[in-house]
Amino acid sequence: MIDLGHARYCDEIVRQTDLLRATLVGADLSAKVPTCPEWTLGHLARHVGGAHRWVETIVRTKASADVPEDEVPDFVGPGDAEPAALDAWLAQGAQKAADTLRAAGPKTKVWSWSADRSAAFWARRMTHETVIHRADAAIAAGITFEVAHDVAADAIDEWLEIVAWSQSTGADEEANELRGAGRSIHLHATDAPDALDAEWLIEFGEDGFTWRHGHERATVALRGPLADVLQAFYRRLPADSDRVEVLGDAELLDFWLARASFG
Protein backbone atom coordinates (compact mmCIF):
# COMPACT_ATOMS: atom_id res chain seq x y z
CA MET A 1 0.00 0.00 0.00
CA ILE A 2 1.33 3.42 -0.95
CA ASP A 3 1.38 6.27 1.55
CA LEU A 4 2.75 9.55 0.26
CA GLY A 5 2.50 11.14 3.70
CA HIS A 6 0.59 14.22 4.82
CA ALA A 7 3.32 16.72 3.95
CA ARG A 8 3.67 15.33 0.43
CA TYR A 9 -0.10 15.48 -0.13
CA CYS A 10 -0.13 19.13 0.95
CA ASP A 11 2.72 19.85 -1.46
CA GLU A 12 0.96 17.96 -4.26
CA ILE A 13 -2.22 20.03 -3.95
CA VAL A 14 -0.16 23.06 -4.93
CA ARG A 15 1.97 21.21 -7.48
CA GLN A 16 -0.99 19.61 -9.27
CA THR A 17 -2.83 22.93 -9.31
CA ASP A 18 0.23 24.62 -10.83
CA LEU A 19 0.24 21.97 -13.55
CA LEU A 20 -3.49 22.52 -14.12
CA ARG A 21 -2.91 26.26 -14.36
CA ALA A 22 -0.18 25.67 -16.95
CA THR A 23 -2.63 23.59 -19.00
CA LEU A 24 -5.16 26.42 -18.93
CA VAL A 25 -2.75 29.17 -20.03
CA GLY A 26 -3.90 30.39 -23.44
CA ALA A 27 -6.64 27.75 -23.62
CA ASP A 28 -10.20 28.55 -24.69
CA LEU A 29 -12.00 28.48 -21.34
CA SER A 30 -15.33 28.04 -23.13
CA ALA A 31 -14.12 24.77 -24.70
CA LYS A 32 -16.14 21.71 -23.71
CA VAL A 33 -14.50 19.06 -21.54
CA PRO A 34 -15.21 15.70 -23.26
CA THR A 35 -14.82 13.69 -20.05
CA CYS A 36 -17.14 16.05 -18.10
CA PRO A 37 -19.68 16.86 -20.83
CA GLU A 38 -21.62 19.42 -18.82
CA TRP A 39 -18.50 21.50 -18.15
CA THR A 40 -16.30 23.91 -20.03
CA LEU A 41 -12.66 24.39 -19.06
CA GLY A 42 -13.76 27.46 -17.12
CA HIS A 43 -16.29 25.41 -15.16
CA LEU A 44 -13.64 22.78 -14.46
CA ALA A 45 -11.24 25.41 -13.10
CA ARG A 46 -13.90 26.87 -10.83
CA HIS A 47 -14.91 23.39 -9.64
CA VAL A 48 -11.33 22.62 -8.58
CA GLY A 49 -10.75 26.02 -7.01
CA GLY A 50 -14.09 25.88 -5.20
CA ALA A 51 -13.30 22.39 -3.86
CA HIS A 52 -9.99 23.63 -2.46
CA ARG A 53 -11.70 26.52 -0.68
CA TRP A 54 -14.48 24.26 0.62
CA VAL A 55 -11.99 21.85 2.15
CA GLU A 56 -9.91 24.70 3.54
CA THR A 57 -13.02 26.02 5.30
CA ILE A 58 -13.91 22.59 6.68
CA VAL A 59 -10.43 22.05 8.11
CA ARG A 60 -9.83 25.62 9.31
CA THR A 61 -13.14 25.69 11.21
CA LYS A 62 -12.83 22.05 12.34
CA ALA A 63 -16.34 21.57 10.99
CA SER A 64 -18.40 18.73 12.44
CA ALA A 65 -20.90 18.83 9.56
CA ASP A 66 -20.93 19.57 5.86
CA VAL A 67 -20.29 23.24 5.05
CA PRO A 68 -22.71 24.76 2.49
CA GLU A 69 -21.03 26.32 -0.53
CA ASP A 70 -22.54 29.73 0.22
CA GLU A 71 -20.64 29.75 3.52
CA VAL A 72 -17.27 29.24 1.81
CA PRO A 73 -15.40 32.53 1.21
CA ASP A 74 -14.87 33.33 -2.49
CA PHE A 75 -16.17 29.92 -3.53
CA VAL A 76 -17.28 30.79 -7.09
CA GLY A 77 -14.26 32.64 -8.43
CA PRO A 78 -13.86 34.91 -11.47
CA GLY A 79 -15.57 34.23 -14.79
CA ASP A 80 -14.04 33.13 -18.09
CA ALA A 81 -13.61 36.72 -19.19
CA GLU A 82 -10.93 37.20 -16.52
CA PRO A 83 -8.37 34.44 -17.22
CA ALA A 84 -5.58 36.13 -15.25
CA ALA A 85 -7.84 36.59 -12.23
CA LEU A 86 -9.03 32.98 -12.53
CA ASP A 87 -5.43 31.78 -12.62
CA ALA A 88 -4.54 33.78 -9.51
CA TRP A 89 -7.69 32.54 -7.75
CA LEU A 90 -6.75 28.92 -8.47
CA ALA A 91 -3.23 29.44 -7.15
CA GLN A 92 -4.43 31.19 -4.00
CA GLY A 93 -7.05 28.56 -3.20
CA ALA A 94 -4.60 25.67 -3.55
CA GLN A 95 -2.03 27.40 -1.37
CA LYS A 96 -4.61 28.23 1.30
CA ALA A 97 -5.86 24.65 1.36
CA ALA A 98 -2.33 23.27 1.59
CA ASP A 99 -1.30 25.71 4.32
CA THR A 100 -4.40 25.00 6.40
CA LEU A 101 -4.05 21.22 6.03
CA ARG A 102 -0.36 21.38 6.88
CA ALA A 103 -1.00 23.48 9.97
CA ALA A 104 -3.82 21.20 11.12
CA GLY A 105 -1.76 18.04 10.80
CA PRO A 106 -3.10 14.69 9.60
CA LYS A 107 -4.90 13.67 12.80
CA THR A 108 -7.14 16.71 13.25
CA LYS A 109 -10.76 15.57 13.36
CA VAL A 110 -13.06 17.23 10.85
CA TRP A 111 -16.21 16.33 8.96
CA SER A 112 -15.93 14.31 5.75
CA TRP A 113 -18.35 12.29 3.67
CA SER A 114 -16.29 9.15 4.31
CA ALA A 115 -15.60 6.99 7.35
CA ASP A 116 -12.21 8.73 7.70
CA ARG A 117 -12.99 12.05 9.36
CA SER A 118 -9.57 13.60 9.48
CA ALA A 119 -7.50 16.28 7.81
CA ALA A 120 -5.37 13.48 6.35
CA PHE A 121 -8.38 12.28 4.34
CA TRP A 122 -8.87 15.70 2.80
CA ALA A 123 -5.20 16.23 1.94
CA ARG A 124 -5.16 12.98 -0.01
CA ARG A 125 -8.61 13.55 -1.54
CA MET A 126 -7.75 17.04 -2.80
CA THR A 127 -4.49 15.77 -4.28
CA HIS A 128 -6.26 13.21 -6.42
CA GLU A 129 -9.29 15.40 -7.13
CA THR A 130 -6.85 17.84 -8.68
CA VAL A 131 -4.88 15.14 -10.51
CA ILE A 132 -7.95 13.68 -12.22
CA HIS A 133 -9.38 17.05 -13.21
CA ARG A 134 -5.95 17.97 -14.55
CA ALA A 135 -6.31 14.92 -16.78
CA ASP A 136 -9.73 16.23 -17.87
CA ALA A 137 -8.20 19.59 -18.73
CA ALA A 138 -5.34 17.98 -20.67
CA ILE A 139 -7.81 15.95 -22.72
CA ALA A 140 -9.88 19.07 -23.49
CA ALA A 141 -6.77 21.07 -24.38
CA GLY A 142 -5.37 18.26 -26.55
CA ILE A 143 -2.13 17.81 -24.63
CA THR A 144 -0.48 14.76 -23.06
CA PHE A 145 -1.32 14.03 -19.44
CA GLU A 146 1.68 13.04 -17.34
CA VAL A 147 1.82 12.28 -13.62
CA ALA A 148 4.43 10.93 -11.22
CA HIS A 149 4.21 7.16 -10.86
CA ASP A 150 3.73 7.16 -7.09
CA VAL A 151 0.98 9.77 -7.29
CA ALA A 152 -0.82 7.83 -10.03
CA ALA A 153 -0.55 4.54 -8.14
CA ASP A 154 -1.88 6.14 -4.97
CA ALA A 155 -4.77 7.60 -6.97
CA ILE A 156 -5.75 4.07 -8.02
CA ASP A 157 -5.43 2.85 -4.43
CA GLU A 158 -7.64 5.69 -3.23
CA TRP A 159 -10.25 5.09 -5.94
CA LEU A 160 -10.50 1.43 -5.00
CA GLU A 161 -10.87 2.39 -1.34
CA ILE A 162 -13.64 4.87 -2.20
CA VAL A 163 -15.59 2.40 -4.33
CA ALA A 164 -15.23 -0.28 -1.63
CA TRP A 165 -16.45 2.19 0.99
CA SER A 166 -19.36 3.18 -1.24
CA GLN A 167 -20.34 -0.47 -1.61
CA SER A 168 -19.97 -1.18 2.12
CA THR A 169 -22.41 1.61 3.04
CA GLY A 170 -25.08 0.15 0.74
CA ALA A 171 -26.00 3.65 -0.38
CA ASP A 172 -24.81 3.33 -3.99
CA GLU A 173 -26.98 0.91 -5.97
CA GLU A 174 -24.50 0.66 -8.84
CA ALA A 175 -21.54 -0.09 -6.56
CA ASN A 176 -23.68 -2.73 -4.85
CA GLU A 177 -23.76 -4.67 -8.13
CA LEU A 178 -19.99 -5.20 -8.06
CA ARG A 179 -20.24 -8.75 -6.76
CA GLY A 180 -20.44 -12.33 -8.03
CA ALA A 181 -17.81 -14.92 -7.08
CA GLY A 182 -15.36 -16.32 -9.60
CA ARG A 183 -14.54 -13.11 -11.47
CA SER A 184 -11.53 -10.83 -11.16
CA ILE A 185 -9.79 -7.81 -12.70
CA HIS A 186 -6.04 -7.29 -12.91
CA LEU A 187 -4.55 -3.82 -13.41
CA HIS A 188 -0.96 -3.82 -14.60
CA ALA A 189 1.20 -0.73 -15.11
CA THR A 190 3.87 -1.61 -17.64
CA ASP A 191 6.20 1.35 -17.04
CA ALA A 192 6.36 1.65 -13.24
CA PRO A 193 9.43 0.62 -11.24
CA ASP A 194 9.15 -2.81 -9.60
CA ALA A 195 9.47 -1.33 -6.12
CA LEU A 196 6.23 0.62 -6.59
CA ASP A 197 4.12 -2.56 -6.82
CA ALA A 198 1.87 -0.96 -9.43
CA GLU A 199 -0.34 -3.98 -10.00
CA TRP A 200 -3.77 -4.59 -8.53
CA LEU A 201 -6.08 -7.59 -8.27
CA ILE A 202 -9.80 -6.97 -7.77
CA GLU A 203 -11.73 -10.09 -6.79
CA PHE A 204 -15.51 -10.31 -6.86
CA GLY A 205 -17.31 -12.26 -4.13
CA GLU A 206 -20.91 -12.92 -3.24
CA ASP A 207 -20.86 -10.12 -0.67
CA GLY A 208 -18.96 -7.57 -2.73
CA PHE A 209 -15.39 -7.18 -3.93
CA THR A 210 -11.94 -7.04 -2.36
CA TRP A 211 -8.67 -5.81 -3.77
CA ARG A 212 -4.97 -6.06 -3.14
CA HIS A 213 -1.66 -5.48 -4.87
CA GLY A 214 -0.42 -8.48 -6.77
CA HIS A 215 0.40 -10.12 -10.09
CA GLU A 216 -2.03 -12.96 -10.77
CA ARG A 217 -4.12 -14.26 -13.63
CA ALA A 218 -7.59 -12.74 -13.73
CA THR A 219 -10.78 -12.85 -15.75
CA VAL A 220 -9.70 -9.64 -17.46
CA ALA A 221 -6.52 -7.57 -17.37
CA LEU A 222 -6.05 -3.87 -18.11
CA ARG A 223 -2.43 -3.14 -19.05
CA GLY A 224 -0.52 -0.08 -20.15
CA PRO A 225 1.52 2.89 -18.96
CA LEU A 226 0.45 3.86 -15.45
CA ALA A 227 -0.91 7.28 -16.42
CA ASP A 228 -3.10 5.63 -19.05
CA VAL A 229 -4.24 2.81 -16.76
CA LEU A 230 -5.22 5.49 -14.24
CA GLN A 231 -7.19 7.42 -16.85
CA ALA A 232 -8.92 4.31 -18.16
CA PHE A 233 -9.79 3.15 -14.64
CA TYR A 234 -11.22 6.59 -13.88
CA ARG A 235 -13.18 6.53 -17.17
CA ARG A 236 -11.13 9.35 -18.65
CA LEU A 237 -9.72 7.15 -21.40
CA PRO A 238 -11.82 4.56 -23.29
CA ALA A 239 -10.94 1.00 -22.37
CA ASP A 240 -10.65 0.24 -26.10
CA SER A 241 -8.05 2.98 -26.57
CA ASP A 242 -4.84 1.91 -28.31
CA ARG A 243 -2.95 3.33 -25.33
CA VAL A 244 -4.04 0.46 -23.09
CA GLU A 245 -4.50 -3.26 -23.65
CA VAL A 246 -7.45 -5.33 -22.44
CA LEU A 247 -6.86 -9.07 -22.20
CA GLY A 248 -9.69 -11.47 -21.43
CA ASP A 249 -13.32 -10.69 -20.67
CA ALA A 250 -13.65 -7.06 -21.74
CA GLU A 251 -17.32 -7.09 -20.74
CA LEU A 252 -16.35 -7.59 -17.10
CA LEU A 253 -14.11 -4.53 -17.21
CA ASP A 254 -16.95 -2.55 -18.81
CA PHE A 255 -19.27 -3.84 -16.08
CA TRP A 256 -16.90 -2.49 -13.43
CA LEU A 257 -16.34 0.85 -15.13
CA ALA A 258 -20.09 1.43 -15.51
CA ARG A 259 -20.70 0.87 -11.79
CA ALA A 260 -17.62 2.02 -9.92
CA SER A 261 -18.71 5.29 -8.33
CA PHE A 262 -19.28 7.04 -5.04
CA GLY A 263 -22.54 8.91 -5.05
Rank of each mutant, 00 (worst) to 15 (best):
residue 5 G to L: 09
residue 117 R to T: 12
residue 37 P to L: 12
residue 41 L to S: 08
residue 117 R to L: 03
residue 200 W to M: 11
residue 209 F to P: 00
residue 260 A to Y: 01
residue 140 A to D: 09
residue 39 W to S: 04
residue 97 A to C: 15
residue 157 D to V: 04
residue 82 E to P: 01
residue 183 R to K: 15
residue 83 P to T: 04
residue 177 E to W: 05
residue 98 A to F: 02
residue 247 L to C: 11
residue 123 A to L: 13
residue 125 R to N: 07
residue 100 T to M: 09
residue 10 C to V: 06
residue 215 H to G: 03
residue 42 G to W: 05
residue 136 D to N: 10
residue 95 Q to H: 14
residue 61 T to G: 00
residue 140 A to G: 05
residue 227 A to T: 11
residue 189 A to S: 13
residue 261 S to C: 14
residue 191 D to A: 05
residue 115 A to E: 15
residue 38 E to D: 15
residue 257 L to V: 08
residue 98 A to S: 10
residue 258 A to N: 15
residue 261 S to Q: 14
residue 191 D to L: 05
residue 235 R to M: 12
residue 204 F to E: 12
residue 6 H to Y: 05
residue 167 Q to G: 09
residue 88 A to Q: 13
residue 237 L to G: 07
residue 183 R to C: 05
residue 244 V to A: 11
residue 10 C to M: 09
residue 194 D to Y: 01
residue 229 V to T: 12
residue 185 I to R: 00
residue 217 R to A: 14
residue 72 V to T: 08
residue 35 T to P: 05
residue 216 E to H: 11
residue 33 V to E: 07
residue 150 D to K: 04
residue 240 D to G: 06
residue 151 V to N: 10
residue 71 E to Y: 02
residue 200 W to L: 06
residue 53 R to F: 07
residue 115 A to I: 13
residue 218 A to M: 13
residue 84 A to N: 11
residue 146 E to A: 15
residue 168 S to M: 07
residue 184 S to F: 04
residue 198 A to N: 03
residue 238 P to I: 07
residue 125 R to W: 01
residue 134 R to K: 04
residue 87 D to L: 13
residue 190 T to L: 08
residue 119 A to S: 14
residue 114 S to K: 08
residue 152 A to L: 03
residue 192 A to S: 15
residue 126 M to S: 01
residue 220 V to M: 07
residue 118 S to C: 04
residue 153 A to I: 06
residue 198 A to M: 11
residue 230 L to M: 12
residue 55 V to P: 04
residue 42 G to P: 07
residue 62 K to W: 03
residue 201 L to V: 12
residue 121 F to N: 00
residue 134 R to G: 02
residue 145 F to D: 03
residue 129 E to D: 15
residue 134 R to Q: 07
residue 34 P to L: 10
residue 41 L to E: 13
residue 88 A to P: 00
residue 65 A to Y: 01
residue 2 I to E: 12
residue 227 A to V: 04
residue 132 I to C: 07
residue 50 G to F: 02
residue 92 Q to S: 11
residue 117 R to H: 13
residue 91 A to K: 06
residue 111 W to P: 01
residue 121 F to A: 00
residue 53 R to C: 02
residue 216 E to N: 03
residue 226 L to F: 02
residue 9 Y to I: 05
residue 162 I to V: 15
residue 117 R to P: 00
residue 130 T to W: 10
residue 159 W to P: 00
residue 258 A to Y: 13
residue 68 P to G: 10
residue 125 R to G: 00
residue 198 A to E: 12
residue 4 L to T: 00
residue 89 W to S: 08
residue 26 G to T: 07
residue 138 A to N: 10
residue 247 L to R: 14
residue 66 D to E: 14
residue 252 L to D: 06
residue 209 F to G: 00
residue 152 A to K: 03
residue 188 H to Q: 13
